[in-house]
């Protein structure tokens, strides 16, 4: 993997030393995005995500009709309408694949730089640790948006290629036209991006604890799995509304007519709480930490 030292960042830092902090943060953010999405690993993650709808679509295409009510929701609708590949793929990727990829990116934020020995360079430039933390988190959020978007768009594309595309039946039994269905796919991608914001904050915090990125990545993924397991235990019902994975599958509310925004709002509030708590923890840890690498 190529080193993530960014000459342009350092150059920019020198050139705009006296520039207002806002502009500096933005250029650091763009550079962070360039590094993140310039990495082969990021592309591998996105390609793996795009493979999910492709696998589903090909499997349905090659097999006989799926009996209604079997398998994940929407699976039985695919053969009639290709756009359901996107819904099915997003549903299937929620429990494991999305948290896995987000865990890799979020766990790598600080620990990855520390591991490569580039963290100190970033901080020698008058970046400020807070700003670096914010930029790193913003980069992870950008991936949180890119990941479900990749699944949804790849699903819609492969679905349109292999199956007929027509009006989409919503959960309420009402039918909407394909352009509106595309809008709903984007809405669900946004919902999932918000859903993953809390996990990213957890990953960011874990990433400040260690200089071994793999450790932070694995810990983030484990946290997401543990949260989902706890969400399944009826004995812990009081805890469920507090788990960051609690509303992950609530995006079905975006497939009702009229749109039901309740779970979107609850989810956003919950994720904001996680971002605040783990953001504050990451701040406390990162600004008091001795950067040795």
């Amino acid at each position: 993997m190529s080193s993530s030292v960014r000459p342009e960042t350092l150059g920019t830092a020198d050139a705009t030393d006296a520039a207002p902090p806002g502009g500096w943060g933005l250029s650091l953010f763009w550079s962070e995005l360039r590094v993140l999405f310039g990495r082969r690993r990021t592309w591998a993650l996105l390609l793996a995500l795009a493979a999910i709808p492709v696998l589903i679509a090909v499997a349905v295409r090659l097999s006989s009709a799926v009996p209604a009510g079997r398998g994940p929701a929407f699976l039985d609708r695919i053969s009639q309408n290709g756009l359901f590949v996107a819904f099915t793929a997003m549903l299937v990727s929620v429990p494991l694949f999305l948290p896995l990829t987000v865990g890799v990116v979020a766990g790598d934020t600080i620990a990855g730089e520390a591991n490569l020995g580039t963290l100190r360079y970033l901080l020698v430039a008058p970046t400020g640790r807070v700003r670096l933390l914010l930029v790193k988190y913003a980069g992870a959020l950008a991936f949180c948006l890119a990941a479900p978007l990749t699944v949804g768009l790849a699903g819609a594309a492969i679905g349109a290629a292999l199956f007929p595309v027509g009006p989409v039946t919503l959960l309420s039994g009402d039918v909407i036209e394909p352009p509106q269905a595309a809008l709903r796919i984007l809405l669900i991608a946004a919902y999932l991006a918000v859903s993953l914001a809390g996990l990213s904050a957890v990953g960011l915090f874990l990433s400040t604890l260690t200089v071994v990125p793999v450790g932070a990545m694995a810990a983030t993924v484990v946290v997401s799995v543990v949260s989902q397991v706890l969400d399944q235990l009826p004995q812990l019902e009081w805890l469920h509304p507090w788990l960051f994975s609690h509303y992950w599958l609530g995006f079905g509310d975006l497939l009702r007519q009229p749109l039901l925004w309740d779970s979107f709002a609850s989810n956003a509030l919950l994720q904001a709480g996680y971002v605040a708590v783990f953001g504050a923890l990451a701040y406390g840890r990162f600004v008091t930490k001795d950067i040795l690498s």
Partner: peptide, 23 residues
């Protein structure tokens, strides 16, 4: 969760819809 059951009444017509099996 990820499903819906509807009862729709319009005049004398009553419809029941279940999204789980599209019935």
């Amino acid at each position: 969760r990820l499903a819906e059951r509807d009862v729709i009444r319009s005049g004398d017509e009553v419809w029941f819809y279940s999204s789980r099996d599209n019935s």
